[in-house]
Design a binder for these strands. Structure first.
Lengths: 220, 220
DNA sequence: TCAAAAGTGTTCTATCTACACCCATGT
DNA sequence: ACATGGGTGTAGATAGAACACTTTTGA
């Protein structure tokens, strides 16, 4: 095991991971933010993150941060990019990730001083550091990957209706899709498959439930 | 300006950039390698890289490394990903980039102890650390981006024949393309445009020269 | 006149887009 | 019976893939 970095030193580079945690809530794409506890920008809403201590990989640090904040199993986690110079008061490098979690599995620790809370990506406040830009890049990346991967499995329950899946896509892409074409394409890719169960809710025909054929990342 | 990290300390995380420098040479995709000067894997071929000292951004560190090794203007440089734990002897983080340079503008510093040299990506030796994997990811990324960006401008001279451009694409993709379809697609995207000059070389009809409409990154 | 690479168009296929009606259910 | 969302097919447009002959030049 490699030795651990000592306590804060102004001349030691700080390596941190930050995680853009997405979930679909109330039909909208939301992101988890916390109150930033350190200068600069103390008190502003910010992406959750933590120092990398060298005892685990960067990916593991990001995954651990995700679980700490949401209690959610690590459904989908991907590295975005790395930036330096965010924080003019300290030599620092931030490795940004994004994660996709299923809203119903999340239990926030709302008693915490950093006040974790979901925010609609369409109506974000000004965030600490460059966090607005990081989130925008994460949204763009997820939207692009919806077309040729199965990563939406991270956002929906194990079984879901096509309507739920379509709402998820629309929330990320920011535009509405044609129901018939959406169904045809989803099924033709083979990424999802029908179950033999239906869900009835309300005064209308019950919807067939589907599942992702794989809940590991697949690229078409 | 932020303070500078001190000399080597075993308990200070080392942040380094490494750069996959690509050029087309003799019709093949080649990558610049150097002899690694430090343990582990001292003496093996490796990607050029250098410590990040905090006085410049990570991107600037990678760009400077590129210029130091090749003398080439920074034609195209993009971040790939960041890894930790490459080097079990030290707490380290490596930020990988790839660069596209035009072979004719490169002047290697061959007198250097680290023996910079071009290697065909199709026939690489075993490299230090995870460098084989880094190069593979870089090739995949470039190949994917050929389809929807103009990044090939980084690999070809300011003016070029369609044959030269096609050879460049084929070297990266590892397969041959149809000449007529290639021409049609290249011109229909508007990424390249004809000049009014021809190049005659050999006992055959002269080829019209083309240029990239923009030599800054463009996404279709 | 010959060899060698440049230049050019059409057909076929697959994919994406647009669009309207019937079905199953609860009240 | 009616309101609500679920489920389905077709036609037109677009983009990509396959494919062969003529042109210009230097030797």
């Amino acid at each position: 095991m490699p030795p651990v970095s000592g306590a804060d030193q102004i001349d030691t580079p700080l390596v941190a991971t930050i995680v853009v945690i997405f979930a679909i809530r109330e039909g909208a794409l939301q992101v988890l933010l916390v109150r930033r506890a350190a200068d600069p920008d103390r008190g502003l809403w910010a992406l959750p993150g933590g120092r990398w201590d060298g005892e685990e990989s960067l990916d593991d640090t990001a995954a651990r941060k995700l679980v700490e904040e949401t209690g959610a199993a690590d459904l989908y986690l991907e590295q975005l990019f790395t930036t330096s110079g965010l924080d003019a008061t300290q030599l620092s490098v931030a490795v940004a990730y994004f994660a996709l979690v299923e809203a119903s599995t999340v239990r926030l620790r709302e008693e915490q001083e950093w006040q974790p809370a979901w925010h609609d990506v369409g109506a974000l406040p000004r965030l600490a550091l460059n966090n607005n830009r990081v989130i925008q890049q994460a949204v763009d990346r997820v939207g692009a990957k919806l077309d040729y991967t199965n990563i939406a499995y991270g956002l929906v329950p194990r079984e879901f209706t096509l309507r739920e899946l379509q709402t998820t896509y629309e929330a990320i892409l920011g535009r509405s899709l044609d129901r018939r074409n959406f169904r045809k394409r989803m099924l033709s890719t083979g990424l999802i498959e029908p179950t033999d169960e239906h869900r009835r809710e309300g005064a209308h025909r019950p919807a067939l439930l589907y599942r992702f054929a794989s809940r590991e990342p697949v690229v078409l």
